[in-house]
Design a protein around this nucleic acid. Structure first.
Length: 315
DNA sequence: AAGACGAAAGTGGTTGA
DNA sequence: TCAACAACTTTCGTCTT
């Protein structure tokens, strides 16, 4: 008997936790003791944690297929978190034998009721519709899966607090998506969300502000750097340009040139400067189009930045 | 000729009484 | 509810490369 040591996959945990005592990110999960321990200061961050991995081991694909007995992971984007039972449409038992007519009739009735129970009351129907909508919008503009998850969680909260009444479901779903983007530091404008959904900007904005107020969220304004990354990607500029852009932005922030100015305008100006400095020149118009600001704004920011940062420009 | 510059008037949203 | 306000946009004529 050969003992095989299996590595537990700790990368499955998406949240990066830090030690509440010393702030160190070096946390170790000890599944034998069911504890999370900080390797820097030794404090036990959490105890009695649940190991979400399987308790069995497999040595090849066939064994894995045999031993595994769960489906997809639970998700917040489906109204019942993907946990409901489905009765399949084959009129056969587990051995593949066909049912008798009376059994068939019974299964048909069961199936019917299963469907009805699954999306039972008005709240559930609301959720089912809204979460489908969230997924749709997120897919429309290629947002990562965690945005849809975050938005879904927010929507569930909103339903629980009875905040949806009197508001359109579509508007609120779009607002939760926008909120999720802001929470995750993804630079997406209301315009982009509005285009991907079927509600207008005004409505989404109203719902967004309402949600923030009622759910007690505090969302920091988007930093210019977040825009800069997006612009660089859309302009297909080299990494070097983006790097310089961020340097410019960092200096600008230190010199308090960013206060009171629209972050997208500043990011656009910084991108422009960086493109000029590296020789990979883009026109103001190109950047203005992508940044959704006018050339004039880019010029104004650009002027301010260059005037004040004249001495730092020897990059 | 394309792009950059800048003045002046216009626009939409926030703030505070 | 409304006016004041700052940031930003639109427009357009002029300058630069």
């Amino acid at each position: 008997m050969v003992e095989t040591v299996e590595e537990k996959d700790h990368t499955q945990h998406p949240k990066v936790q830090v030690c509440p005592e010393c702030g160190s990110p070096h946390l170790m999960r000890d599944y034998d003791l069911a504890e999370i321990v900080c390797t820097d200061c030794g404090i036990v961050v959490a105890s009695k944690i649940a190991d979400r991995g399987p308790e069995w081991r497999s040595f090849d694909n066939e064994q894995y297929a045999k031993r595994t007995r769960v489906g997809a992971p639970t998700t917040y984007t489906v109204h019942d978190k993907g946990l409901s039972t489905m009765i399949d449409w084959h009129d056969r038992d587990i051995y593949g034998k066909s049912f008798s007519p009376s059994q068939k009739a019974q299964i048909y009735r069961l199936r019917k009721w299963q469907r009805r129970i699954r999306v039972s009351d008005a709240t559930e129907r609301n959720l089912a519709f809204a979460l489908a909508e969230i997924t749709k919008i997120a897919n429309n503009i290629n947002l990562p899966g965690n945005i849809a998850e975050t938005a879904s969680v927010t929507y569930r909260k909103a339903v629980k607090e009875r905040l949806i009444r009197g508001r359109s479901i579509k508007g609120v779903t779009a607002a939760t998506i926008y909120l999720a983007c802001r929470q995750c530091g993804l630079a997406r404008t209301l315009d982009e969300i509005a285009q991907a959904s079927s509600s207008n900007k005004k409505e989404i904005g109203r719902s967004y502000r309402f949600l923030i107020k009622e759910l007690g969220y505090s969302i920091p304004p988007i930093r210019p750097g977040q825009y800069a990354t997006k612009f660089s990607n859309q302009l297909t500029m080299q990494g070097k340009v983006e790097e310089i852009t961020h340097k410019i932005l960092a200096t600008a922030k230190e010199m308090r040139l960013t206060a009171g100015r629209g972050p997208s305008g500043i990011a656009a100006a910084a991108s422009y400067i960086a493109s000029v400095l590296t020789g990979e020149r883009k026109t103001q118009r190109e950047i203005a189009q992508i940044a959704q600001v006018t050339e004039v704004t880019i010029r104004n920011r650009y002027k301010e930045l260059v005037e004040r940062m004249y001495f730092q420009m020897s990059i």
